[in-house]
Amino acid sequence: MKILTVAEMAIREMVRRRAVLALLLALPLAFYLVRRGDQVGQSIRFLLIGLAWAVSTAALFASGTSRPIEPRLRLSGYASHHLYLGRLAAMWLLGIVVAAPFFALVAIDHGDQVRLGAVALAMLFAVTVAAPFGLLIGALVPRELEGTLLLLVVVGLQMMIDPADALTKVTPFWSSREIATYAVDHTGDEYLTRGLVHGLAFTILATAVVALLSTLRLRVRLRAATSA
Protein backbone atom coordinates (compact mmCIF):
# COMPACT_ATOMS: atom_id res chain seq x y z
CA MET A 1 0.00 0.00 0.00
CA LYS A 2 2.70 2.47 0.97
CA ILE A 3 4.82 1.30 -1.97
CA LEU A 4 1.89 1.89 -4.30
CA THR A 5 1.35 5.41 -3.00
CA VAL A 6 5.01 6.26 -3.50
CA ALA A 7 4.86 4.79 -7.01
CA GLU A 8 1.68 6.68 -7.84
CA MET A 9 3.08 10.02 -6.73
CA ALA A 10 6.37 9.40 -8.55
CA ILE A 11 4.44 8.76 -11.76
CA ARG A 12 2.24 11.81 -11.29
CA GLU A 13 5.33 13.89 -10.63
CA MET A 14 6.99 12.65 -13.79
CA VAL A 15 4.09 12.79 -16.24
CA ARG A 16 3.38 16.43 -15.38
CA ARG A 17 6.78 17.33 -16.74
CA ARG A 18 5.62 17.46 -20.35
CA ALA A 19 9.01 18.39 -21.76
CA VAL A 20 10.66 15.51 -19.96
CA LEU A 21 8.10 13.10 -21.36
CA ALA A 22 8.64 14.43 -24.87
CA LEU A 23 12.39 14.00 -24.53
CA LEU A 24 11.92 10.53 -23.07
CA LEU A 25 10.18 9.58 -26.30
CA ALA A 26 12.41 11.63 -28.59
CA LEU A 27 15.67 10.06 -27.46
CA PRO A 28 15.01 6.43 -28.50
CA LEU A 29 13.22 7.64 -31.61
CA ALA A 30 16.19 9.72 -32.69
CA PHE A 31 18.56 6.83 -32.06
CA TYR A 32 16.35 4.54 -34.10
CA LEU A 33 15.89 6.89 -37.02
CA VAL A 34 19.59 7.76 -37.28
CA ARG A 35 20.48 4.11 -37.83
CA ARG A 36 17.43 3.18 -39.82
CA GLY A 37 19.39 3.26 -43.08
CA ASP A 38 21.84 0.65 -41.72
CA GLN A 39 20.98 -2.92 -41.05
CA VAL A 40 17.88 -3.71 -39.04
CA GLY A 41 20.03 -4.95 -36.17
CA GLN A 42 21.87 -1.70 -35.66
CA SER A 43 18.73 0.43 -35.57
CA ILE A 44 17.11 -1.85 -33.03
CA ARG A 45 20.25 -1.97 -30.89
CA PHE A 46 20.43 1.82 -30.90
CA LEU A 47 16.74 2.03 -30.12
CA LEU A 48 17.31 -0.19 -27.09
CA ILE A 49 20.22 1.92 -25.89
CA GLY A 50 18.19 5.08 -26.38
CA LEU A 51 15.35 3.55 -24.39
CA ALA A 52 17.66 2.43 -21.62
CA TRP A 53 19.31 5.82 -21.52
CA ALA A 54 15.99 7.66 -21.37
CA VAL A 55 14.61 5.47 -18.58
CA SER A 56 17.78 5.57 -16.51
CA THR A 57 17.94 9.35 -16.86
CA ALA A 58 14.33 9.62 -15.72
CA ALA A 59 15.11 7.39 -12.74
CA LEU A 60 18.19 9.47 -11.96
CA PHE A 61 16.12 12.64 -11.89
CA ALA A 62 13.31 11.05 -9.91
CA SER A 63 15.86 10.03 -7.34
CA GLY A 64 17.25 13.57 -7.34
CA THR A 65 13.91 15.33 -6.82
CA SER A 66 13.00 12.92 -4.03
CA ARG A 67 16.27 13.14 -2.19
CA PRO A 68 15.41 16.23 -0.11
CA ILE A 69 11.91 14.92 0.63
CA GLU A 70 12.73 11.37 1.56
CA PRO A 71 13.90 12.19 5.11
CA ARG A 72 10.52 13.69 5.91
CA LEU A 73 8.71 10.71 4.34
CA ARG A 74 10.91 8.39 6.33
CA LEU A 75 9.86 10.23 9.50
CA SER A 76 6.20 10.14 8.42
CA GLY A 77 5.96 6.39 8.67
CA TYR A 78 7.65 5.09 5.52
CA ALA A 79 10.41 2.52 5.67
CA SER A 80 13.25 3.07 3.23
CA HIS A 81 12.22 0.01 1.17
CA HIS A 82 8.79 1.60 0.60
CA LEU A 83 10.55 4.55 -0.94
CA TYR A 84 13.01 2.89 -3.31
CA LEU A 85 10.70 0.05 -4.31
CA GLY A 86 7.87 2.49 -4.99
CA ARG A 87 10.13 4.63 -7.14
CA LEU A 88 11.47 1.57 -8.93
CA ALA A 89 7.97 0.35 -9.70
CA ALA A 90 7.06 3.78 -11.06
CA MET A 91 10.07 3.87 -13.35
CA TRP A 92 9.39 0.37 -14.62
CA LEU A 93 5.83 1.28 -15.47
CA LEU A 94 6.89 4.50 -17.10
CA GLY A 95 9.55 2.66 -19.10
CA ILE A 96 7.08 0.09 -20.36
CA VAL A 97 4.69 2.83 -21.43
CA VAL A 98 7.49 4.60 -23.28
CA ALA A 99 8.66 1.33 -24.86
CA ALA A 100 5.24 0.30 -26.14
CA PRO A 101 5.02 2.68 -29.12
CA PHE A 102 8.56 1.74 -30.15
CA PHE A 103 7.64 -1.90 -30.13
CA ALA A 104 4.76 -1.02 -32.43
CA LEU A 105 7.18 0.91 -34.61
CA VAL A 106 9.57 -2.04 -34.91
CA ALA A 107 6.69 -4.41 -35.54
CA ILE A 108 5.47 -2.25 -38.42
CA ASP A 109 8.91 -1.48 -39.78
CA HIS A 110 10.59 -4.90 -39.50
CA GLY A 111 7.93 -7.22 -38.18
CA ASP A 112 8.66 -9.83 -40.82
CA GLN A 113 12.43 -9.89 -40.35
CA VAL A 114 12.85 -10.30 -36.59
CA ARG A 115 11.65 -12.42 -33.71
CA LEU A 116 9.08 -9.92 -32.35
CA GLY A 117 8.62 -11.67 -29.02
CA ALA A 118 12.33 -11.44 -28.42
CA VAL A 119 12.36 -7.76 -29.39
CA ALA A 120 9.67 -7.16 -26.78
CA LEU A 121 11.75 -9.07 -24.27
CA ALA A 122 14.85 -7.04 -25.13
CA MET A 123 12.88 -3.82 -24.60
CA LEU A 124 11.49 -5.15 -21.35
CA PHE A 125 15.01 -5.90 -20.18
CA ALA A 126 16.33 -2.52 -21.29
CA VAL A 127 13.66 -0.96 -19.06
CA THR A 128 14.09 -3.49 -16.25
CA VAL A 129 17.80 -2.82 -15.99
CA ALA A 130 17.70 0.91 -16.69
CA ALA A 131 15.35 1.84 -13.84
CA PRO A 132 17.44 0.49 -10.95
CA PHE A 133 20.60 1.59 -12.75
CA GLY A 134 19.37 5.20 -12.83
CA LEU A 135 18.39 5.00 -9.17
CA LEU A 136 21.80 3.53 -8.39
CA ILE A 137 23.61 6.43 -10.03
CA GLY A 138 21.30 8.82 -8.23
CA ALA A 139 22.20 7.17 -4.95
CA LEU A 140 25.93 7.14 -5.66
CA VAL A 141 26.22 10.66 -7.09
CA PRO A 142 23.97 13.09 -5.27
CA ARG A 143 24.39 15.97 -7.73
CA GLU A 144 22.30 15.67 -10.85
CA LEU A 145 24.81 17.11 -13.29
CA GLU A 146 27.50 14.68 -12.19
CA GLY A 147 25.00 11.85 -12.34
CA THR A 148 23.95 12.81 -15.83
CA LEU A 149 27.56 12.92 -17.01
CA LEU A 150 28.31 9.57 -15.41
CA LEU A 151 25.32 8.11 -17.20
CA LEU A 152 26.58 9.62 -20.44
CA VAL A 153 29.96 7.96 -19.93
CA VAL A 154 28.35 4.58 -19.33
CA VAL A 155 26.01 4.82 -22.31
CA GLY A 156 28.76 6.17 -24.52
CA LEU A 157 30.97 3.28 -23.51
CA GLN A 158 28.16 0.88 -24.20
CA MET A 159 27.80 2.24 -27.73
CA MET A 160 31.49 2.49 -28.58
CA ILE A 161 32.76 -0.71 -27.10
CA ASP A 162 33.83 -3.49 -29.43
CA PRO A 163 31.24 -6.27 -29.00
CA ALA A 164 34.07 -8.79 -28.90
CA ASP A 165 35.72 -7.11 -25.92
CA ALA A 166 35.38 -9.05 -22.67
CA LEU A 167 34.60 -5.79 -20.92
CA THR A 168 31.29 -5.60 -22.71
CA LYS A 169 29.84 -8.17 -20.31
CA VAL A 170 30.05 -5.80 -17.36
CA THR A 171 28.24 -2.95 -19.11
CA PRO A 172 24.74 -2.54 -17.73
CA PHE A 173 22.73 -2.93 -20.90
CA TRP A 174 24.56 -5.91 -22.33
CA SER A 175 21.53 -8.10 -21.58
CA SER A 176 19.20 -6.32 -23.98
CA ARG A 177 21.94 -6.28 -26.59
CA GLU A 178 22.29 -10.05 -26.38
CA ILE A 179 18.55 -10.60 -26.50
CA ALA A 180 18.36 -8.22 -29.45
CA THR A 181 21.01 -10.22 -31.27
CA TYR A 182 18.91 -13.31 -30.67
CA ALA A 183 15.85 -11.46 -31.98
CA VAL A 184 17.42 -9.88 -35.03
CA ASP A 185 20.16 -12.26 -36.15
CA HIS A 186 18.19 -15.43 -35.35
CA THR A 187 21.05 -16.86 -33.31
CA GLY A 188 20.81 -19.83 -30.99
CA ASP A 189 19.20 -19.87 -27.55
CA GLU A 190 22.48 -19.23 -25.75
CA TYR A 191 22.22 -15.49 -26.53
CA LEU A 192 18.77 -15.36 -25.02
CA THR A 193 19.76 -17.28 -21.92
CA ARG A 194 22.90 -15.22 -21.42
CA GLY A 195 20.92 -12.00 -21.80
CA LEU A 196 18.22 -13.06 -19.37
CA VAL A 197 20.70 -14.17 -16.73
CA HIS A 198 22.80 -11.02 -17.10
CA GLY A 199 19.77 -8.75 -17.00
CA LEU A 200 18.28 -10.38 -13.93
CA ALA A 201 21.61 -10.48 -12.14
CA PHE A 202 22.32 -6.84 -12.92
CA THR A 203 18.83 -5.75 -11.83
CA ILE A 204 19.10 -7.61 -8.57
CA LEU A 205 22.58 -6.30 -7.91
CA ALA A 206 21.72 -2.67 -8.70
CA THR A 207 18.55 -2.86 -6.61
CA ALA A 208 20.48 -4.38 -3.72
CA VAL A 209 23.05 -1.58 -3.77
CA VAL A 210 20.28 1.04 -4.00
CA ALA A 211 18.58 -0.64 -1.04
CA LEU A 212 21.76 -0.65 0.95
CA LEU A 213 22.62 2.99 0.26
CA SER A 214 19.07 4.16 0.82
CA THR A 215 18.72 2.28 4.08
CA LEU A 216 22.02 3.69 5.29
CA ARG A 217 21.22 7.22 4.28
CA LEU A 218 17.72 7.16 5.72
CA ARG A 219 18.43 5.29 8.93
CA VAL A 220 16.86 6.99 11.91
CA ARG A 221 19.51 7.61 14.49
CA LEU A 222 17.27 7.86 17.52
CA ARG A 223 17.00 5.79 20.61
CA ALA A 224 13.36 5.08 21.23
CA ALA A 225 12.27 5.41 24.80
CA THR A 226 11.49 2.04 26.32
CA SER A 227 7.97 3.13 27.19
CA ALA A 228 7.12 4.07 23.60
Binding site: P71, S76, L222
Partner: peptide, 17 residues
Amino acid sequence: VMLDGRLGYCPQDAGTY
Protein backbone atom coordinates in the same frame (compact mmCIF):
# COMPACT_ATOMS: atom_id res chain seq x y z
CA VAL B 1 18.85 11.72 21.30
CA MET B 2 16.04 9.84 22.99
CA LEU B 3 12.54 10.04 21.56
CA ASP B 4 9.32 8.87 23.12
CA GLY B 5 6.44 8.78 20.66
CA ARG B 6 5.68 9.77 17.13
CA LEU B 7 7.62 12.48 15.38
CA GLY B 8 6.41 15.26 13.09
CA TYR B 9 9.14 17.18 11.28
CA CYS B 10 8.79 20.36 9.26
CA PRO B 11 11.98 21.13 7.33
CA GLN B 12 12.88 24.71 6.55
CA ASP B 13 12.36 24.17 2.84
CA ALA B 14 12.42 21.47 0.20
CA GLY B 15 9.91 19.31 2.00
CA THR B 16 7.42 19.16 -0.86
CA TYR B 17 7.21 17.91 -4.43
